[in-house]
Simulated assay, not measured.
Amino acid sequence: MAKRDYYEILGVSKGASADEIKKSYRKVAMQFHPDRNPGDKAAEEKFKEAAEAYEILSDTDKRAQYDRFGHAGVSGNGRGPHPGGMNMDDIFSQFGDIFGEDVFGSFFGGGGGRSRGGQRTRGTRGSNLRIKLKLNYEEIAKGVTKNIKVKKYVHCNTCGGSGAKDKGSVQTCSTCGGSGQVRKVTSTFLGQMQTVTTCPTCNGEGSTITAKCNSCHGEGRVYGEETVTIDIPAGVQEGMQLNVSGRGNAGERGGMPGDLIILIEEEQHKELQREGLNVVYDLHISFTDAVFGIQAEVPTIDGRAKIKIPAGTQSGKIFRLKGKGFPAVNSYEKGDQLVHINIWTPQNLTSEERAMLEKLSHSTNFKPNPDKNQKNFFDKMREMFN
């Protein structure tokens, strides 16, 4: 099933400001929040859908790619059951950053903006990674699946990403009692005001580590290598970016990972050139071939094709091979191959060849804009070259 438009999901226009997008997301997220709709799978899916839309539209680079290429510009093999690569824990972990620490906790009675079911999401989110991926014309035209080895921070297998030496080394924070937040009540002339801030002892994680893992030294991650499978849609272009959610650097102490951003580069073809969706090929033919006409074979993205060059073809003529170009990323449109005719002029002539051509040069058929009597010209040429 095709994905819905992200702007439509949040109920905003394409020209909406960042504040308008944030405000609309807050409204939709509150409407379909699981705590408000217990057991309602349809509401949960709309909640996830809104989170995916906000994840793209709130990021300037991702939004620009989406506006230009649609869903294909921001798709990838993300993690989790959610189509955009975000699972429910990922979504809840971002609420504190989006709306402030106390909004969802106080509204729904939970343990804070980054909680779910009373359980804190530990750790710090990993950073994004950006890599370049070079593709040839055939891969761009058909789409391709690439397995890429990426050097990055990965979860520590020794401690399972917790950063602790063993389970007994993880203790509930004594300052916040595991909530990751501290509440302070102050008296003002308006009455008592309650503020909620991140716990300074555990930095909002809800727990502390008494003995660190010997492999990762308490970070919950180590520098290593991971093979990432990426589906590249057909029709991508030089400079286009694809976002693969959750495949960047692993977060510290179980924090959610960053994203992997793929920058597309085009490998130059030895014979063809790209112009948007079209492919251009320069075909050089001899003077006599232009006069008499020939059947030529030209390279295309997916093999070779035959093309008929009629008699009397002029230099600069362009022949179009319909549908032999690149597909568009976000539509069913497809480009063509344009064959530019270039007539090659001989540079080294024998005395006999020069004499024949000098004789022909006096014919009106050799002048620009020849008259309609082309038959005499072709007859003369056939006599001289046969």
Rank of each mutant, 00 (worst) to 15 (best):
I341D: 03
I341K: 04
L349F: 11
P370M: 05
P370V: 05
T345P: 00
N348G: 00
E352G: 00
E353D: 03
V339K: 06
H362D: 08
I343V: 15
N342L: 12
F366A: 13
H340N: 14
I343Y: 03
G335N: 12
L338Y: 07
P370W: 05
D371E: 06
K367V: 01
P370S: 06
F366M: 15
K372G: 12
T345Q: 11
E358G: 07
T350S: 15
S351D: 10
N369W: 11
N369Q: 13
Y332Q: 06
L357E: 03
E358I: 01
Q347H: 04
E352C: 00
E333T: 13
S361G: 06
T345C: 02
N342A: 03
N373W: 05
S363K: 08
K372R: 12
T350N: 00
P370L: 07
Q347W: 02
T345K: 09
M356V: 03
M356N: 15
K334M: 06
E358A: 12
M356E: 02
N365Y: 08
S331T: 14
S363Q: 09
S361V: 05
Y332N: 09
H362Q: 11
S363M: 09
K367D: 03
L357F: 14
Q347Y: 03
E358K: 14
L360C: 15
N348A: 08
P370T: 07
K367R: 09
P368C: 13
Y332P: 03
D371N: 08
T350Q: 01
T345R: 09
K359C: 10
S363W: 06
T364W: 03
I341N: 03
S363F: 07
Q337A: 10
Q337W: 05
S363Y: 08
K372P: 00
W344I: 14
H340P: 01
L338A: 08
T350F: 00
A355G: 01
Y332S: 06
